[in-house]
């Protein structure tokens, strides 16, 4: 029998925003408080997973039309690129740089190449989890 998941769907719409926000927070805060690319990425995929649970593959695919494998590759490129940037300066691979830049309006901006690296991690984790879930879920 077909059932409607109205309650679930409504709740999901509400909660989803919360989760994504939290995951972004956790991703950016990772260098200072617990969290980071892994957890952030995993949580984001958790959010998408919830979406998938509440709705269905087709709907989610229209909302988020990503090729997750490409996302994985992109994330890897990010991570490698961050490391390989050091090659240009003839410093050891993966040497990070950081510094504070003064931006007129925003004030002090703390920049760290490790964030870029973590972004790569984030992308890979989201890409991997989602592509796994999508491939398995889509298998008849």
């Amino acid at each position: 029998m077909k059932t409607s998941d109205l309650i679930l769907q409504t709740a999901t719409k509400l909660i989803l925003f919360l989760i994504v926000l939290f995951s972004v927070y956790i991703f950016f805060a990772g260098h200072y408080t617990p969290g980071g690319g892994f957890v952030g990425g995993l949580l984001t995929s958790g959010a998408i997973l919830l979406l998938l649970l509440a709705f269905d593959m087709k709907t989610v695919q229209t909302i988020l039309p990503f090729n997750y494998l490409y996302m994985v590759a992109l994330g890897l490129l990010f991570a490698i690129g961050t490391g390989a940037g050091a090659l240009l300066f003839n410093t050891p691979f993966l040497t990070h740089a950081f510094g504070d830049i003064h931006v007129p309006v925003l004030g002090e901006l703390h920049l760290h190449t490790a964030t870029l690296f973590d972004l790569g991690v984030y992308l890979v984790v989201v890409g991997v989890t989602m592509s796994i879930i999508q491939t398995i879920g889509g298998d008849e």
Binding site: Y70, A73, L77, I80
Partner: peptide, 12 residues
């Protein structure tokens, strides 16, 4: 590094 980058590019 070379095979790693190659592997990533090959996904694309």
């Amino acid at each position: 590094l070379i095979p790693l980058i190659t592997g990533v590019l090959l996904i694309f």
